[in-house]
Amino acid sequence: MDITLRNVVKIFGSIKVLDGVSLSVPSGRKTALIGPNGSGKSTLTRILMGMLACEGEVLLDGLSPFARRERLARRMAYVPQSPPQLSASVADVVRAVARIRDLEERRIAVIAAQFDLDLGALAGRPIRALSAGMKQKLLIALALSSRADLLILDEPTASLDVSARARFFSLFAEMSGTATLLLCSHRLEEIQHLVEHVVALDGGRVIFDGPVETFLQTRAVSLMEVVTTRNSHADWLRAHGFRPAFGSSWVRSVARAEKMALLNEIVAQFDGDLDNVVIRDVETLSDKAWEARSCADG
């Protein structure tokens, strides 16, 4: 299912949450929608699901999801960022979804089992009594069982622990097949191997729209922290773009492609005076986000 957005604007009260978003996603492409919290990712996914009205043009295979939601929804599946807090039991919800989608309940159970979720054992449990991770797995199983052409997952791994995440990603890569995929996250590191394309939002605007490799080359940076035992290197560090952080440590960002060269230079320059070097890969979404992140990190 292909996606076309032209100058989409969404205003809540007096806040412009999406500010002229234009996108064109061909059928079958796997896209990461990234951006800091509050950048409008969830709002955009809800607009695509036809749940929110907006200004501008939104077309899925040429149809407006807001006006033709029921028709398109047969071919779409969605995992919301926050799972529903229902008193209805797992069995009730699975049955309802199966009925509405004309699916076999067994199919959902089989997929859930691959995510280590035993629907038989959980049948009588109210949805809201499940752990956040279980809810998320259930929703993912419901979405994957639908055989949808367009899968939209809004921070699907937020509540999963590290091993469950890894498992989720490998299974998901297998199961999403040829469907068009939109995966929201505020961290690209996690999902970069699942996608081929990146759309980055910041403050409701698209600040990047291109292949994941290009994003990593141009936008992705590493945060380098150098700890020295002597102060005599201060001038050299300053001249090389570092700024003092706490204690005797200095930090700067460096394009990911250049980080190894810089590291070699530092090792050569400092010789025995180097106490420690920490390098972390992050992605700059904007100067603002970068500031926030280096402040939090510093």
Partner: peptide, 14 residues
Amino acid sequence: EDGTLELLFSLPVS
């Protein structure tokens, strides 16, 4: 508020 609408209206329910 509890997400029922988000669940139901991601399905082909009018």
